[in-house]
Amino acid sequence: MKKRIFRLFFAWQDQAEEKWLTDMAEQGLLFSKYQFGLYTFHKSEPADYVYKLDYKASSDQDFEEYVTIFEDAGWEHVDRFHGWHYFRKLKSISEEEPAIYSDHSSESQKYKSLVNFLIPIFLMTVAIFLTIIVPNSHSAIVSIVKWIYVFLISIYLYAIVRVRRKMKKLQIK
């Protein structure tokens, strides 16, 4: 049995998303697929899975190597969405909460590559806004699009600020 749930998590909410997926598994809903805010779960017995999200910006050439390193450490690659990768691992009684990052320096790298991905998109949105939308905003439709762009630009800017803050916090630890 499948169950689909729509829920939005923003770029800076990766830990909240991990926790949500882990809680869902505890209730017997095993996450299997993600696409544009739509989460697919499979109904099963409650399971002690821990879900973790990694962000990998680099090229896909080493995708197999990347996944194998996780599999060798006992993690299962569940799904991917653009640069985001979903992994899960069964909690063992002896082990403390399993983690995919074991030091702050490499974990801050995750947020650094995320910021490096967000900045060009942000700049592109601003460029489209200034060169195409603003000069034509006397028409009614374009002025609606204008407000959508204002919203998008604010979200991107906010995301960059929040993700950068996470990165900096890990760097000074």
Partner: peptide
């Protein structure tokens, strides 16, 4: 990667372990 992980755990008698994301990134 896997042998690096095993080697470190043997060397440090399990005192130091590296998560897979940290391993890949480093």
């Amino acid at each position: 990667g896997y042998l690096i992980m095993q080697n470190i755990e043997e060397l440090t008698e399990g005192g130091f372990s590296i998560g897979p994301a940290s391993m890949y990134t480093t």
